[in-house]
Each structure stands twice: as structure tokens, then as C-alpha cells.
Simulated scan of single mutants.
Amino acid sequence: MDKKDIQILTLLQQDASLSLNDLANAVNLSPTPCWRRVQRLWDSGVIQKQVTLCNPASLKLGVTVFVAVRTSQHNEEWTQLFVKGTRTIPEIVEIYRMTGDIDYLLKIVVSDIAGYDAVYKKLIKEVELQDVSAGFAMEVIKYTTALPLDHLM
């Protein structure tokens, strides 16, 4: 990966709807070599997918909840049930397995506290949990889906 690839990725992370011509112009390439580079980034798995990011508030999803989950069961069967159950709950938008005091961190997006309660009830139906602790986000200070690329230069 060279400087041109990093420039392409930086621009596409900001706006994936850029036309090939606009992208090529921005990185000082002609369209065909630019297209080849983008294809190579797709083929190598660097670019995974293109999506549309929606404004949660515009969709009446103004409550973001971060949920710390602890379990007393650390076995394959429990883990498979947890993963299967959490992946089927659409309000859970991110799931991380953690080190330290908590086992899993969930990011949940809902319309209100009652929406969170409904998700909580679904979650405890799926698997036995030792402890669930929820924190409600008061304000978004920084939000980005763009990954840092400076370390590649």
C-alpha cells in the first residue's frame, strides 16, 4: 500500500459516493489506474463494504446505551448461545469481547428507555448473565467510522 492508496482510502472513508472521476482527480490519477487501485483494495479485503450511514435522531433512535456484560460461564456452549442471541437483536449494533472486569461490551441504539428495557428482556431470555450494567450516552463528543491511516505513511 502506497501514498496514493492511502489517499484513496481517506477520501472514500469520508464519502464513498465519490465518482471515479472525482476520486481520480483528487489523487492526481487518471480514472483507469485509480479504478485498478480501488479494485485491488476491494480484492485484498482492505475495503470490506460500502454503506449508507443514517442519522439516528432522524429515525427517532435518540438513545444510545453502552452495556457491560459479565458472565460466570466461560465455555463454548454459553458463548455460542450469547453470540447467536445478541446477533439477532437489531438494536444491538456493536458487540465486543473484552479483557478486564467485563466480558462483553454492547452498543445498543433505541428510541427510549422502554426500548432499552425491551432489548434487555430479550437479552436475558437468550442466555444467563451474571451482571448487566448500562450507561446511557448523554452527548456524542466524537463519532466517526473512518479508521486512522497515518501509521501507514
Rank of each mutant, 00 (worst) to 15 (best):
M1K: 07
D2M: 04
K3R: 10
K4S: 05
D5S: 15
Q7M: 08
Q7V: 00
I8W: 12
L9H: 10
L9C: 03
L9Q: 07
T10K: 15
L12Y: 03
Q14A: 10
Q14T: 02
D15N: 15
L18A: 03
L20G: 10
L20V: 03
D22F: 01
A24V: 05
N25Y: 06
N25T: 11
A26D: 07
V27C: 03
N28P: 00
L29W: 01
P31L: 03
T32L: 04
T32M: 13
P33V: 09
C34F: 01
R36D: 02
Q39K: 15
R40W: 04
D43W: 00
D43G: 01
G45V: 08
I47S: 01
I47V: 08
I47E: 02
Q48M: 12
Q50C: 10
Q50R: 15
T52G: 08
L53S: 08
C54A: 12
C54H: 10
P56V: 12
P56D: 06
P56G: 09
S58Y: 07
S58L: 15
K60C: 04
L61N: 06
V63Q: 09
T64S: 10
V65E: 09
V67F: 02
V69D: 02
V69L: 14
V69F: 06
H74P: 03
H74Y: 14
E77Y: 05
W78Q: 01
T79A: 09
T79K: 13
T79H: 11
Q80V: 11
G85L: 11
G85N: 06
G85V: 06
T86D: 01
R87M: 00
R87P: 00
T88P: 00
T88R: 14
I89P: 07
P90V: 05
P90A: 05
E91I: 06
I92A: 04
I92D: 03
E94Q: 13
E94S: 09
R97Y: 00
T99S: 11
D103C: 07
K107W: 01
I108H: 02
V109F: 05
D112Y: 06
I113Y: 13
A114E: 13
A114C: 01
A114Q: 14
G115K: 13
A118T: 10
V119Y: 05
Y120D: 09
L123G: 07
K125S: 14
K125T: 14
E128M: 09
D131G: 04
D131L: 14
D131R: 15
V132T: 09
S133G: 02
S133N: 12
M138K: 13
V140C: 04
I141D: 12
Y143E: 14
Y143N: 10
T144N: 14
L147I: 11
P148E: 14
H151N: 11
M153E: 15
M153S: 12
